[in-house]
Design a binder for these strands. Sequence first.
RNA 1: GCCGGUGUGGCGGAACUGGUAGACGCAGCAGACUCAAAAUCUGCCAUGGGUAACCAUGUGUCGGUUCGAUUCCGACCACCGGCACCA
Length: 871
Amino acid sequence: MQERYDPAAIERSAQADWDAQRAFVADENAPGEKFYCLSMFPYPSGRLHMGHVRNYTIGDVLSRFMRMQGRNVLQPMGWDAFGLPAENAAMANGVPPAKWTRDNIAYMKGQLKSLGLSIDWGRELATCDPDYYKWNQWLFLRMLEQGIAYKKTGVVNWDPIDQTVLANEQVIDGRGWRTGALVEKREIPMYYLRITGYAEALRGALDELPGWPERVRAMQANWIGQSYGVDVDFPYAPDTQAALGKDGALRVFTTRADTLFGVTYVAVAAEHPLALAAAARDAGIAAFVEECRRGSTMEADLATQEKRGLPTGLHVRHPLTGEPLPVFVANYVLMTYGEGAVMAVPAHDERDFEFALKYALPVRTVIASTRAAYQRVAPPWIDAYGEPGVTVDSGAFSGLASAAAVEAIAAELASRTLGAKRVQYRLRDWGISRQRYWGCPIPIIHCEACGAVPVPDADLPVRLPEDLVPDGSGNPLAKSASFLACKCPRCGADARRETDTMDTFVDSSWYFLRFTCADQQGSMVDARADYWLPVDHYIGGIEHAILHLLYARFWTRVMHDLGLVRVAEPFANLLTQGMVLNHIFHRTPASGRREYFNPLDVDLVIDAATKQATATLRKDGSLVTYEGLGTMSKSRNNGVDPNLITEKFGADTARLFMMFTAPPEQSLEWSDEGVQGANRFLRRVWKAVYDHVAAGPAGALDAAQLAPADRDLRRIAHQTLSKVRDDIGRRRVFNTAIAAVMELLNAVGRHAGDAAPARAARQEALEIAVLCLGPIVPHICHTLWQELGQREPLYRVRWRETDPAALTQEQVEIVVQVNGKLRGRISAAPGASDEELRSVALADEAVRRFLDGKEPKKVIVVRGKLVNIVI
RNA sequence: GCCGGUGUGGCGGAACUGGUAGACGCAGCAGACUCAAAAUCUGCCAUGGGUAACCAUGUGUCGGUUCGAUUCCGACCACCGGCACCA
C-alpha cells in the first residue's frame, strides 16, 4: 500500500473500475426494493457551481447508502436545456443557443463525472432534444382536447425600442435592461393551463405527503390559497347603468360577508370594465388607469406601493339596504384575483381602512369585539379591528357571531339571487406562452380560414430550428420564413406557424418520468415509469419550493388522469437543500457602476472585539467594501469554481467539505480553511489504514479475548455504525454522521497494543470507518476497502449489522442536579432502579454540600440519565 | 407588503422525544519534531471572578409554562428564501 494519499490517482482508478463494471446501471429487473433517487437537473449555464456540487453530492450519498441497504437504486441525470441565458449568450457572442447549450452540456458532464457520482448515464436526456420535447407538444395537444389548455389574453412587459417582450428579471426599475426604455404592459393572446381546476386536489394531497418538509407544504398551501367566502352582487345604480348602457351588477368576492353592513364604497382594479367605462368619460380617470397599467406586474411591487385610488363618479347599490355606494378605481385591487373588485369595509379591513382615511371615506363599525378590545373603530388601526366578533348595526343580522352572520347573510343574498357561497383560490392558471426562441415550440398553426389549428400528432415534433441567433429585437422564429411557412392541417391552405414557445417549467414538469424510459420512441412514458415512480427522494434548492414543485405535481396529475402513469404524486420525499454562500466585496467608483471582486482576490480581517471588517484587494492593498455573506452568483462575482477544489484536493475532499460543514437544509458558508480541514481528515484516514496494514494482516476477532481498551474501541465502532445508519437513513443528515466517524478515528488513534486481539479490534474499527464513509467519499474508501483485505468491491458491499454485545457497558454516568443545576456525577449499573439512583445521588459528597442539610421536597429520576433533587 | 425559514463560543456547527449547552471541525495559543519552515503529533481554548478546587453568568431581545427550556407558548428585533416571464 502506498504511504501517501494521492487523490488524483485514486479517483481516476476508482472511476475506471466503476465504469468497467457498469456499476451504476439501473435495472428494473434487479432484486431489491426500488429506490429512485433524484437531484434536480441543472440548467447548462457553462460550468458547475457549488450549489450543484452540494445538490448532487447529497443525492449520491443517499444513492450509495441505499445500495448498501440492498435497495435497487436509480440515480439519473439530465439537462434543463431551454431558457433565457442561452439567448443572452447568443446576443453577447453571436453563437447559436443550440451550440452554446450543447457545448456547455459536454463540459459540465465532464465535471459531474469527475465528482464520482453513481449515476446511470444511459438515461441522460436534454430537454432541447426533439425526442424529449415532442412529448411536451403531444401532451399539450391532449390538454387542448380536454380543455385543460386554453387561450386567453395575458399581460407582458414590452420594450418599445427593442420591440420585444421582456422577462421580469430583464426589467430593472421599470426600464428595459438593454435599452433603458420605460417598459410598457401589453395584452397579448397566450395559452394557459387550467391548474386552478386541480387546486383542490393539489391542496388536499399535501396532507398525504409526510415525506415533505412542513415548510414547503405550508408554502404550497398558502400559494394555492383556498378561502371560503361569498360572491356578492351590487346592482348598478342608474348612473352606472347609463354609463354601461345596460343593467347589471358588480360582483365582488368576500370572505367577510358578516361585515356587509359596514361597506362604505367598492373598489375595482384598473383593468375592470367599470374602470374602463369611467375612463372613457373622464380624462383624469383615464390617466390614472393608464398609470396603473404601466406599473410593475410583480406582486411584491404591487403590495408595497402606496395605496391610491380615484372615485369613478359611478355608483352601485348595497344588495340588502339599497344604499348607493361610490365605486373607486384602486391600485391595490388585483384583476387576477376573485372578480377584480372588492367591497370595502374600512372598519374591519386594514387596506380599506388606510384607503378610507386617505380619501376621507366613512368608517362604519359593524363588528363588536368579543374580548372588548375596542368599542368603536377609530385611528390608528389595531389588529383587533380585523378579527371576527359579533355583528352590530347590521339590521336584522345584528347580534350574530361572525361565522353565523356569514351563513345568514349568504342565505339572504341567495334568496334574492344577489349572492352565493363559493370557494376561491389564490392560485392562477399557468400561462405557458413565451415570446422567445430557445424553447419548445407550441404546436399550433394559424390559418386565415380555420383559426388556430392544432398540429396533427403525426407531424410531431414541431422542430425548433437550431441555427438561429437572437439579437434582442424580438423572437427570431417570427422572422424565419422556413419555420413560419406551413399548410393548414384542416383546409390545406397556406398558413403560419405559432412562434411562441413554452415556459421552461413545462420541460422540468415531467423529466423525472422520462428518465425511467428515456429510450422509448413510441410513447411519452411506458410501464417502467410505474415501476420507478414515485421518486423516493427528490433533492433540490429551497428556491423551487413553490413553482417547479407545484407545476410538476400538476403535470403528473394530468398524466395520471389521462391514464399515462399510475402515480398522482411524483415525489414521495423531498429534501430542500440550503444555498451555498460566500463573502461579497464590491467597490462603487465615482463613474457609478458597482464593481464586484472575487473573494479569492481579497483579504478579509474581522476584528474580534469591534466586529469591524476590513477588506483589502490582494494585488494592491486598496480597500473594498465588505457586503457580508450572500448566495454565490455570477452577478456578485463570489462563486468558487469546483474545478479549483477538485484539481487541488480531489473530489472526495469537495464532497466531504460539502457534507460536513452544515446540515443539508441549512445554507452553507464557503470556507477555504474548511476545505483544507476536510482534506486533512482524509489524509488521517489514509494514514490510519496505512499504519495498520503496514504491520501485516490482523487475525480474526474473538470477543472473549479482548482487553478492556479493545472492548471500548469495539463499542465505539459499533455505536458509530448505528449512528451513521440512523443519521443518513432516517434523519437525512450527514454532518453528524461524519463527526461520529471522526470520533471513531480519534479512538483508533488512541488505541494501542500489538497483541492479536488488539489488532483485530483495530481492523474491525477501520473496516467500519471505511464502510461508514463509503457513501460520502467513495473514491478513497474504494481503495482503502481493498487495502484492508476485502475482496468484494465496496460499491457492492452490504451495510454491516451492529453487534448488540459490543454495545454493553458495565457502568454508566448519571448526572445529579440540585434544583435543576448540575452539581455532581455518579456511576451506576445501566439497569439501576430509581430507588438505587436516588439513594446514591443523595449520598454523593458534592450533592450533600448543596443540600445544606435540608430535606429534599421532591426527587426526579430519569433512568440511565439524571437525578434532580428539588429542595 | 404577504408567505416560509433562520438566529448557540473568534468561526461552521452539535445537543434527535423538555433532561450534562458547546460533540466534531476551523481558527488561535503553547509545546514536541526540524538548522529553519511546511507537514505531522500532544495539550489548552464560552465569558467574568479565583493560584486552584470551584462559583456566577450564558443559546438574538423581553416575558411566560415547568422540578428542569437551545427545545414548548406569547410579543418583539435582525437576517435569508419565494411572490407567478431567472432557473
